[in-house]
Amino acid sequence: MSQAQSSSPTLFVVDDDEQMRESLRALLSVLGYEVLPFSTPGGFHRYYHSEMPGCLLLDIRMPRQSGLELYEQLLREGKRLPVIFITAHADVATAVAAMKSGAVEFLEKPFDRDTLLNRVQSALELDAQWRGQDAAFASLAARIEVLNERDRETLQMIQAGESNKAMAAKLFISERAVEMRRSSLMKKLQVSSVAELIDLTSTHRILAELQHLKASQSLR
């Protein structure tokens, strides 16, 4: 998967503790990352838009709004961003809650540089992956969007594994007409073979399900 967005990924650091926040910023910037620190979840929330790639280093224990709450809020709003929860003491309850909400990583303070680097790296990779999927789905959706009623009918039949002959019989048209519908459909979806067509449609279904899952997660 390639980077979908042109802008470089940013590490958003949200921690109310100034020393912790600034020390993270110092370490991550000398490691060559773009770092943007926030002292409150609200500050980050106001700033962040879903197009911004990167990952979130989030302190769990914060006044007013905890890291978990912020993460849930982001999910509810469909802003999916990999999160590295930073905690002083990862007790089971918080860990389970964080895992359920889809957080990828946990970091227990104090942590060493390599661990941090590993976590950050995998989080950024996940973000890139997510963004790639999103982009693919978006283009698929755009292509499927342009199909007319006749094309969709044809597609459904192809997916069902019907032969040209059977389709012609069901639609009360000639086999030649079926051939023409097929080539028109494949042209619109920019595929060159039936195998490619099937792969595209099933990918779309999986991505749609993922989107649906994401939506239902946020409703939880």
């Binding site: 503790d17 020393q19 912790m20 020390s23 370490l27 104090p110 942590f111």
Partner: peptide
């Protein structure tokens, strides 16, 4: 752990 973590980071 806050200052300790900060020390480790710095």
């Amino acid at each position: 752990n806050q200052p300790l973590g900060a020390i480790a980071n710095y």
